[in-house]
Amino acid sequence: MPDTGDPGTGHLVAVVAVAAAITVALRAAPFAMSATLRSSALVADLARHLPAGIMIILVVHLLSDVPLDSALVGVRELVPVAVTVAVHLWRRNALLSMATGTASYAVALALVPG
C-alpha cells in the first residue's frame, strides 16, 4: 500500500459513515423485501454470479499497482497469487491459503527486491 500521507479526518469520517450506512442497509434489505422480490429469478441470478465477479475485479485492481517495467516484478506479484489459489483449491482452508500465499510473497520479495 503506498503511503500517501494523511487523507484528512473529515474524509475518513465520511468514508466510515457512507460504508456503514450502505452495509447496514444491505444487511437489513432482505427483511424488508417483499416475498415476490425475495423469490425473483433476477435476485437469484445476481446472488449466484455477482460475488465471484466482484471479487475478481478487486483482485485485478489490487494487482494493477504493480509496475510493469520489469517482467520479473510481474512474476514476483503473480506467483504468490497462484500459490494462494492452488493451496486454497487443495485444502479449502482460508487461513492456511493466506498464510502460505503471504509466506511465498515474503520469499518473492527477498528474491526480487525493489
Partner: peptide
C-alpha cells in the same frame, strides 16, 4: 499481501 490473499481466497471460493 495478506490483504490481496484475502480477496484471492474470496474470489476462488
Amino acid at each position: 499481501f495478506v490483504f490481496t490473499a484475502l480477496f484471492v481466497v474470496l474470489a476462488t471460493e
